[in-house]
């Protein structure tokens, strides 16, 4: 039988998502358990992503499993010209589960077709990063107590942001209203807006964060990167318009939380960190529990 992999958030039914989130809550209560004793997990990072890799390795270590792998392709056989096919066929002999990060889109789906053990996609180029989406959902559920009837305010680069697209698709399974705050060049692509319209979900677009900030249950911040702009003048004009400062939060909802996939550069001013509404570092911690839940689910251990 083909092992169960997690390549795209769409691979999971809503019931399965809900189950993973409640399992993550269990791991939050008891993060150190002996469930993975004797199990070996490979972290194959064909491009570096320190945060994601450490989060996975922490998740495995806390459950008593061992981790082997590489942290970027320069230290692996890929530099000798080995194909992904051969790497996966070899490594799946050594381990019980593969966590893979790869710059080429679709590489994770391909690996999951070849592998004899479950594959978790830890990012395939600009395509999918489902464990990020699940930890975002867990953070939203944990702070809001529900995933129903929330207002999600997405800010920054909504055009190229893989995390916001996946989160939008995932949250659209529940009754959600969205506010999209982005400069003209980085607006949410039409295909996602069409998707929401077809589902009858509300969204509103603006270039002014202050206009919608007080409606938000969740503010999801992303980085506005200089290299995304065809015109550098355009970047200079907007770069400060999408920075969150502490003084902007005074009228926001009391239970509102600020999320960010990290790393942050300057889009959230450090004066926000002390505010109880800042949640991005806890969000990173939630990533460990969520990944524990995902690993155990795929291995059929919970």
């Amino acid at each position: 039988m083909k092992p169960r992999s997690l390549v795209s958030i769409d691979d999971l039914t809503t019931e399965e998502i809900t189950k993973i989130l409640s399992l993550a809550a269990e791991f939050e209560k008891t993060p150190v358990q002996d469930i993975l004793r004797g199990k070996v997990v490979a972290t194959l990072f064909f491009e570096p992503s320190t945060r994601t890799r450490l989060s996975f390795e922490s998740a495995v270590n806390k459950l008593g499993g061992k981790v082997i792998g590489f942290t970027d392709s320069s230290s692996s056989s890929v530099t000798k010209g080995e194909t992904l096919n051969d790497t996966i066929r070899t490594v799946n002999n050594y381990v019980d589960l593969i966590v893979m990060r790869h710059p080429i889109e679709g590489s994770a789906r391909y690996a999951s077709e070849i592998s004899t053990v479950p594959v978790i996609n830890a990012g395939d180029g600009a395509n999918q990063h489902p464990t990020q989406t699940l930890l975002d959902l867990y953070s939203i559920l944990k702070t809001q107590g529900t995933l129903e009837n929330l207002n999600i305010c997405m800010v920054g680069d909504l055009k190229y942001g893989r995390t916001v697209h996946s989160l939008l698709m995932a949250m659209s399974r529940w009754t959600t209203s969205f506010n999209f705050v982005a400069p003209e060049e980085l607006k949410m692509p039409d295909e996602y807006k069409l998707y929401l319209r077809n589902l009858g979900l509300d969204y509103y677009e603006t270039a002014d964060l202050n206009e919608v900030i007080n409606m938000a249950d969740i503010i999801y911040m992303t980085r506005v990167q200089r290299e995304r702009f065809s015109d550098p003048m355009e970047y200079e004009k907007v770069k400060n318009a999408y920075v969150l400062h502490d003084h902007m939060l005074s009228e926001t909802k009391p239970g509102m939380k600020i999320l960010h996939p990290l790393p942050r550069v300057n889009e959230i001013s450090t004066d926000v960190d002390a505010n109880a509404k800042a949640y991005y570092f806890e969000q990173a911690l939630n990533g460990v529990y969520t990944r524990q839940a995902i690993i155990c689910t795929l291995l059929g251990l919970k």
């Binding site: 992904l84 096919n85 080429i104 889109e105 679709g106 590489s107 391909y110 180029g125 600009a126």
Partner: peptide, 14 residues
């Protein structure tokens, strides 16, 4: 053929 130049099908025999 997939039109995405960054797609795995344009890199390996898939």
């Amino acid at each position: 053929k997939c039109m995405n130049p960054k797609c795995i099908t344009n890199f390996e025999k898939v």
